[in-house]
């Protein structure tokens, strides 16, 4: 195991440069942390990922992190960002894959790095980017029936009332109760508030004494 720290140019090896030109990728400008970065076309990403993991001079065997960045004013809108770590050579690499909004889909790398499973589920949950070939693309942090992708820039910080869906019909904001098509027995139970709040709290009054 190499003991030296990662120096700014350490990931820019010949093997990487050869791979970049072979797959038509491009180098990213130098970042403040000195981690080399490449921008990859999504059609060639899966094959490139295999090469990055398997080539003797590269050996990026540990996928550290997957996330996405939302740029609403750019084309493509989403940037899926991968951080790779080669334990053999102790090098880091940042890979970016552009994903347009209209067809928000990116190849899944679960077969290359198993850890991508939950990471990709999180990116799907938070940004709505789908991963083609993912074995189990469910939401992970938000509830399964949650209708939005909260880390998109157009999602408000304060959130939206998620028991109601909003849609605009001819300038009139229509609301519709969600979860109406849930299976029987799972409907939210109506709460009888005629005698105050169910937990014994009423407006402004102190909680009922439990003793």
């Amino acid at each position: 195991m190499a003991d030296h720290p990662v120096s700014p140019s350490s990931s820019k090896t010949e093997a990487l440069a050869a791979l970049v030109s072979e797959f038509g990728a491009e180098h990213l400008p130098d970042a403040a942390d000195g981690i080399a970065g490449i921008l990859v076309d999504r059609d060639s990403w899966l094959e490139l990922a295999r090469q990055l993991r398997d080539q003797e001079d590269l050996r990026f065997d540990l996928l550290v992190d997957v996330t996405a960045v939302d740029w609403p004013d750019r084309q493509p809108r989403f940037e899926v960002v991968y951080h790779l770590w080669s334990l053999t050579h102790n090098r880091l690499l940042r890979v970016k894959v552009g994903v347009p909004e209209e067809q928000a889909e990116c190849p899944s790398v679960v077969l290359v790095w198993g850890t991508a499973n939950w990471h990709e589920r999180e990116v799907f949950d938070m940004y709505g980017v789908r991963f083609a070939g993912h074995p189990d693309l469910r939401r992970i942090l938000m509830p399964d029936d949650y209708p939005y992708h909260p880390l998109r820039k157009d999602f408000p910080l304060e959130g939206v009332d998620n028991s109601v869906s909003y849609r605009n019909e001819g300038g009139v904001l229509m609301t519709q109760e969600l979860f109406v098509d849930r299976p029987a027995g799972q409907d939210p139970t109506p709460v009888d508030r005629s005698k105050g709040d169910p937990q014994g709290y009423s407006d402004g009054a102190a909680p009922a004494d439990e003793s």
């Binding site: 970042a31 403040a32 942390d33 981690i35 550290v64 992190d65 951080h83 880091l92 940042r94």
Partner: peptide
């Protein structure tokens, strides 16, 4: 700019 910085936390790589 952009930065990825990791430290060795009690449970592993906190980045």
């Amino acid at each position: 700019g952009e930065v990825y910085q990791a430290t060795e936390a009690a449970n592993g790589e906190l980045g």
